[in-house]
Simulated assay, not measured.
Amino acid sequence: MNSVDVVVPCYRYGHLLPHCVNSILSQEDVEVRVLIIDDASGDGSADVARELAAADPRVEAREHTENKRHIATFNEGVLEWAEAPLTLLISADDELNAGALRRATELMDANPSVAFCYGHAPRWEVQNPRPQLRQGAWRPIVYDGHSWIKGRFDAASNPVFSPTVVVRTDLQKKVGGYNPKMLHTSDLEMWLKLALYGDVGFVSGADQGVFRVHESNMSSDYYDHDLGLKDLQMRSLTFEEILTNHGDLLPDVPELDRLFRRRLAKEALLRAGRAYDRGNGGTQAVDELVTFARDTCEDAQRLPEWGTLQLRKAVGPRVAPLLSPLVLTAVGRKLRQRGRDQRLIDEGV
């Protein structure tokens, strides 16, 4: 029977901790050990962890005397404690679906080249009813590691649902822990590092867990007030770090660099454009998004999104919301074509 060590970092989620731990202990056809690490919550969460440990010998509880924050807590579990062949790191506010670990371990047993596998975890807006999780038939999908990495650079985003990721423990220790420089993208950097050394598995057809979305989610601060600029900056830093520190393991560094820069610049310009659509154009936050796009991608001003943004700016923040996005797209397309024609003339082509 396969063994999986499960690390559950907890900070003030004591009220949710039993749901998370029970979803782990109820997994069938696998042996599990659980380590709950309370990061000095100070609200009784550590007491809940100790109660869970006392009720089941498979559960161990630790309590930090001072808050070490999430990265140090993650690394304590996955690097210092985990020793089973496979490791899962799951936040105390998330849960596994029934059969999740059986599916993951079956996939990895059948495909020794797989460095880690993941699956879908529906987002649960806690003010809404709990989503119905898919069970039953599923199929394994295995992606070549380097091809998967290229897809991530092309999309410049993280498609991996962290509560579902099962990692080979020996490889986890080889690549090291989570990077404290990556405040909320340390998981993305970890998946990229792991994929440098193996293939990536995906459980298709059945949900592997559920991801709670609530006000105290760690990532929520990165999407308010600045129109998502911090999020874009952290993703850019993550991809830059991979190319700087691990470029010797990748065959196409210049292309990967071009892909992520172009994608992030496009996204920044789109966010700026949406601000104009909402009547919030001309603000410092919008200016900073545009600056980010230009600093990130040297061809930012040739992107389609640049032309449509300039149109929005020309008509002003009061008029832009009244214009249909379809109209803006059509007009922007004409402006881009006019610009291309002018460049051809200027270049003597």
Rank of each mutant, 00 (worst) to 15 (best):
G247N: 05
E288F: 03
V327T: 15
E305R: 01
A330M: 13
D277Q: 14
R263A: 10
G247S: 06
R274H: 14
L323K: 03
L269C: 06
G316N: 09
F292P: 01
L256P: 01
V290W: 08
L250K: 03
Q310G: 07
A314E: 10
R271A: 14
T329D: 15
E298S: 13
A285H: 08
P251A: 12
V315Q: 03
Q284W: 06
V319M: 11
P325G: 14
D248F: 03
A293C: 10
D299F: 07
L264S: 03
T283Q: 14
E267A: 09
A285Y: 03
L326R: 15
L326S: 15
F260G: 00
E305V: 04
Q310K: 14
G282H: 08
A275L: 12
P251S: 12
R261P: 02
V327I: 15
L256A: 02
T329Y: 13
P304D: 07
P325M: 10
E305M: 01
R312G: 03
L256H: 00
A265L: 00
Y276K: 04
Q284L: 14
R312I: 01
V315T: 07
L303N: 06
G247I: 01
K266E: 15
V286W: 05
R278K: 15
V253T: 10
L311Q: 01
N280R: 14
A300G: 12
V327F: 13
L259N: 04
D277I: 09
A314S: 13
L311Y: 02
L250G: 02
P254I: 09
T329P: 01
G279E: 12
W306V: 05
R294V: 14
R263T: 12
D277G: 12
G247M: 02
L249Y: 07
V319F: 10
R278F: 10
D299W: 03
L323Q: 05
K266G: 13
R274A: 13
A265F: 01
E267K: 11
G279A: 11
G332V: 05
V286N: 09
T296S: 03
D248C: 05
R274D: 15
T329E: 15
C297Q: 07
V286S: 05
E288L: 11
V331T: 13
V286Q: 11
R261E: 03
Q284C: 08
G332M: 07
L311C: 02
D295F: 03
R294E: 14
D295W: 06
L322I: 05
D299P: 01
A293Q: 07
L323F: 06
G281Q: 04
G332H: 02
A314I: 02
A272S: 12
L249A: 12
F292M: 08
R274P: 00
D252G: 06
K266C: 11
V253C: 10
N280S: 13
A300V: 04
D277K: 12
T291V: 10
R278Q: 14
W306N: 09
L249S: 10
L264Y: 04
L326Y: 13
E267C: 05
N245I: 00
L323Y: 04
Q310V: 08
R302P: 01
V315K: 00
R258K: 11
V315M: 04
P325I: 08
V319S: 02
A268K: 05
H246C: 07
A314R: 12
P254Q: 15
G332L: 07
L309S: 04
K313F: 00
G282L: 07
N245S: 14
L250C: 07
